[in-house]
Every structure is written in C-alpha cells, then in structure tokens.
Simulated assay, not measured.
Amino acid sequence: MPSRKKPSVRTRVLAGGAALAVVGAGVVGTVAAGAADSTAATPATPAAPVAARGSELTRSTHLTLDAATKAARAAVEAAEKDGRQVSVAVVDRSGNPLVTLRGDGAGPQSYDSAERKAFTAVSWNAPTSELARRLAQAPNLKDIPGTLFLAGGTPVTAEGAPVAGIGVAGAPSGDLDERYAQAGAAVLGR
C-alpha cells in the first residue's frame, strides 16, 4: 500500500481558511435572514386616505362613449350622402381619442389627420378653420405637437367649456371636412 504524504503547512492553512470562510458565510446569512424575518413580521401602518376639501376640487363634464359614437357616425353619414370618403375622430376634453371611424375608401392619411384636427379644436375651443386663419399672426402655433391647423375640426362644449372635439379628414377641401364635423356635433344637441 502506498504511503500517504502529509499535506504541507501551506495547504492546511488554505484549507482551514476556506472552511472558516464557509462557516462564517453561513453565520452571516443566518443572522441576515433572521433580521429580514423580524422586519417582515412588523407590518407597516398604512397611511389613511386624505380627504380634499370641496374648495380644492373642480368638477368636469365628459362626453359619453355613446354620444361620441353617435357624433362620429353622423359625420361619416353626412360625408357619404355627398359621395365623400372620410375619417372621423372624436376626442375627449383632454384630447384623448374616444372614437375614430375610417369610412369606406378613406385615404390612409385621413385617420391621423382627423384625430389631430379634433385635438386642435378641443385644445383651443375653436373650429380649426378659425385657428388656421390665426396662423398669420402666430405662425409658431403649427409647431405644437399633435396639432393640425387645417379646416375640419370643431369643438363640442357644455356650459361654454370644451368637452370634446370632432375632426374630419379626407374630403377634397377643409370646408367640407368642417361641414361634416359640424354635422356630427349637431346630433349632440338634439
């Protein structure tokens, strides 16, 4: 049987150091886990809701989805009666799309243009044809993101405040687009 060689002092020191490191890591891990458990066992007290006073609040009016759909359909139908293919968008008071309809045969650019006209009309609470005329005095208006200063958008108001915008695009002229947008808005007052 071959004789075993005794490990060198260096090997024994390294092996002992490694063993000590493993034991130390186990102790530290156990202590850390115990600390985490004690923290988790103490639930945080949830903050009570804070009630705002009436003087700190405003009320807003929004167009319903049914009303927006009715307005969009009326605008598309008005255009179809004239043999026009358009897209119609109705946005809420914040400019977020509620309904967008792309009429049969409407051009691909009309969808985005209708949304931008609606956004512009509700943002300024004015028909986009009027806003397009204002560009002569303030040409930088057209640089505002999401806007389109071409005729075809009309605001919808309640008690004088804008609650929605209707935009139409795709007819041969902005005047026609705006006429169809106004036809959509008109059904809301009935």
Rank of each mutant, 00 (worst) to 15 (best):
W124C: 04
R10Y: 08
T100F: 08
D82T: 04
M1T: 13
L20W: 13
A89P: 02
T154H: 07
D82A: 12
P97H: 01
L20E: 04
T69I: 09
A136N: 09
T100D: 04
V156E: 03
P145I: 05
G17T: 12
P46F: 10
L65S: 12
R179L: 15
G24V: 09
D175V: 05
A68F: 04
P139D: 06
G29F: 05
G184H: 05
S123L: 05
Y180E: 02
E159Q: 12
A67Y: 01
D175C: 01
A171T: 01
T64D: 09
G107E: 11
V27D: 02
S55C: 10
R179A: 15
G83T: 13
D177G: 00
A138L: 14
Y111G: 06
G83V: 07
S123G: 12
L63E: 02
G17W: 06
R190P: 06
T154C: 04
R179I: 01
V163M: 00
Q85N: 10
L188Q: 10
E130F: 07
A15W: 12
G95P: 05
G160P: 00
L131F: 12
R133W: 10
L63M: 13
G105Y: 15
S94H: 08
T154M: 00
V91R: 04
W124K: 01
E159I: 08
R59Q: 12
A47G: 08
A19D: 07
L188C: 05
A75E: 10
P145S: 09
S3F: 07
L176S: 03
T100K: 13
P172T: 06
P2F: 04
L65E: 14
A132V: 05
P145G: 01
L63F: 15
L188K: 11
A78W: 00
R84D: 11
V88T: 03
V168E: 13
D104T: 07
T147K: 03
V156L: 14
T61V: 15
A181I: 03
A72P: 03
A186R: 08
G16L: 15
G95Y: 03
G54D: 10
A47C: 04
L131P: 01
R84E: 15
A52P: 10
S55W: 11
P155I: 11
S38L: 14
V168N: 01
S129W: 05
A114P: 03
V187M: 11
A186K: 15
A79M: 11
G160A: 09
L14C: 03
V90L: 04
